[in-house]
Computed example of a mutant assay.
Amino acid sequence: MGRRRTFDEDEVVRAAVGLFGGRAYDGVSVDDLVTHLGVHRNSLYKTFGSKRGLYLIALRRHVVDDVQPLVDALAAVPDAAAVLGLVTSADLGLLLLAAVERAPADEEVAEVVSAALAAVDQAIADALGIPTELAAALTAAALGIRLRGNPDGVGDALTRRLDPLD
Rank of each mutant, 00 (worst) to 15 (best):
A116E: 04
P151G: 07
A123E: 05
L86C: 03
R102T: 14
A137L: 14
E11I: 14
E111I: 04
A118T: 12
D156G: 14
A157G: 12
A80V: 08
A123T: 07
L84C: 09
D156T: 14
Y45C: 05
A16Y: 02
L95S: 07
D72M: 09
S43A: 15
A105P: 08
A118K: 09
A115V: 10
E133V: 15
G149K: 01
A90N: 02
L54D: 05
H40E: 14
D156P: 10
N150E: 13
G27A: 11
L158R: 03
A115I: 06
Q122V: 11
E101H: 06
G18E: 08
T35R: 11
A140S: 09
D163S: 14
I130R: 05
V109Y: 03
S114Q: 13
V87Y: 03
F20K: 00
V64S: 07
I130N: 05
G93R: 05
K46L: 14
M1C: 14
R148F: 15
A103P: 04
A119G: 10
D166N: 13
A116R: 02
A81Q: 13
A105T: 15
P151W: 10
D32T: 13
R148A: 15
A76S: 14
P69Q: 00
V83A: 07
T47E: 10
I57V: 15
D163E: 15
I130L: 12
G49I: 08
V12R: 03
V17H: 00
L56C: 04
L158Y: 07
A137S: 15
L143K: 04
G155N: 09
D91C: 04
A81L: 09
P151N: 06
A103H: 00
V17Y: 02
Y55R: 00
A99Y: 12
V28H: 00
D152I: 12
Q68W: 09
V109L: 08
G27C: 11
L37S: 03
T6S: 13
A81N: 09
G21Q: 01
R41H: 10
T35G: 11
I130A: 09
E11D: 15
V67E: 00
A82R: 04
G129W: 04
L59Q: 00
P104Q: 06
P104G: 02
R4V: 11
A15I: 05
L84P: 09
I145R: 01
A99T: 12
L19G: 04
N150H: 07
V154T: 08
A58W: 00
D65M: 03
T88I: 00
S29I: 08
A98R: 00
D72I: 08
L56D: 03
N42K: 13
G18S: 07
A82H: 03
V83L: 05
F48M: 01
N150W: 08
V87I: 13
S89I: 10
D126E: 14
D166G: 12
L56Y: 03
R41N: 06
H40R: 13
V112A: 10
G21C: 02
V30A: 09
L158K: 05
R3A: 11
A125I: 06
